[in-house]
C-alpha cells in the first residue's frame, strides 16, 4: 500500500510527465486552448499510455530479452503504439460514434506523442523504476499502474493549462508574445507551482 501511494504521488505530482520530465509537450501546447478538448486529449493519451505499457512490457520482458533482440525495442514499440492507436480508433468508431466524434480527432496525433513512447521506455528501465517505486521490484502490474497514473498526471496538467489559456483569451497580449511564447510562460508558472511537490517526496 505504501508503495502504491508513493508511486501515485510520484507519477502524478513529483515526477509529472509534463512539468518534470517534459514529455508530451506538443499536445500540451497544441490542444490546450479549450478545456473540453484538453480533457479529451488527456483521457485519450492516458488510455493509450496504459494500453501501450500493458502490451510492450510483457513483450519486451518475456519475448525480446530472452530471445536477445532487445536492441530492436524502438522499432517494435513504435509499431505496437501505432497499431494500438489504429485499433482503438476503429473500436471507438464502432462502439460509440459520439465518443469517436469527441475523441477521434486526437487519436491519430497520439502515435507521435513522446509521452507514450516515453512511458514504454521508462517502465522497462529497471533502475529508474526502482527509484520511482521506492525500491519495490517492477512487475507487470506496477508497470501498467504507473503508466495509468502518469497519464492521469498528464491529463491534470492539460486541464489546468487549458483553464489558464481560456482566461488568457480575455486579455490583450503584446504582438510577439501572442501564441506559443505566452503559452510557454504560462506553462512555466505551472511548473514552478508543481516544483513545490518535489519537496514532499
Amino acid at each position: 500500500m505504501a508503495t502504491f501511494i508513493a508511486m501515485v504521488l510520484s507519477a502524478v505530482l513529483t515526477n509529472n510527465f509534463i512539468t518534470v520530465q517534459t514529455l508530451g509537450i506538443c499536445p500540451f501546447l497544441g490542444v490546450s486552448k479549450k478545456t473540453s478538448s484538453a480533457l479529451g486529449m488527456g483521457v485519450a493519451v492516458t488510455v493509450v499510455m496504459a494500453l501501450a505499457a500493458a502490451v510492450t512490457w510483457p513483450i519486451y520482458e518475456y519475448v525480446m530479452v530472452p530471445l536477445n533482440f532487445a536492441f530492436l525495442e524502438i522499432i517494435v514499440f513504435i509499431f505496437i503504439i501505432a497499431s494500438l492507436v489504429q485499433m482503438l480508433e476503429k473500436i471507438i468508431q464502432k462502439l460509440s460514434p459520439s465518443l469517436y466524434n469527441a475523441m477521434g480527432v486526437y487519436l491519430p496525433l497520439i502515435t507521435t506523442n513522446c509521452a507514450v513512447l516515453g512511458v514504454c521506455e521508462l517502465v522497462i528501465d529497471k533502475t529508474a523504476m526502482a527509484g520511482l517505486l521506492g525500491g519495490a521490484a517492477v512487475n507487470f502490474g506496477w508497470a501498467v499502474l504507473y503508466s495509468l497514473f502518469a497519464g492521469l498526471g498528464f491529463t491534470l496538467i492539460m486541464v489546468i493549462m487549458s483553464g489558464m489559456r481560456e482566461k488568457l483569451n480575455n486579455v490583450k497580449i503584446a504582438k510577439y508574445l501572442n501564441g506559443f511564447p505566452i503559452s510557454m510562460v504560462t506553462a512555466s508558472l505551472i511548473c514552478m507551482a508543481f516544483m513545490v511537490f518535489t519537496y514532499i517526496a
Binding site: 517534459t22 505566452i182 510557454m184 510562460v185 506553462a187 512555466s188 508558472l189 511548473c191 514552478m192
Partner: peptide, 10 residues
Amino acid sequence: TPAGAFIVFG
C-alpha cells in the same frame, strides 16, 4: 528546471 526552460524557450 523545466520551469526555467519553458520561460527561456517562450
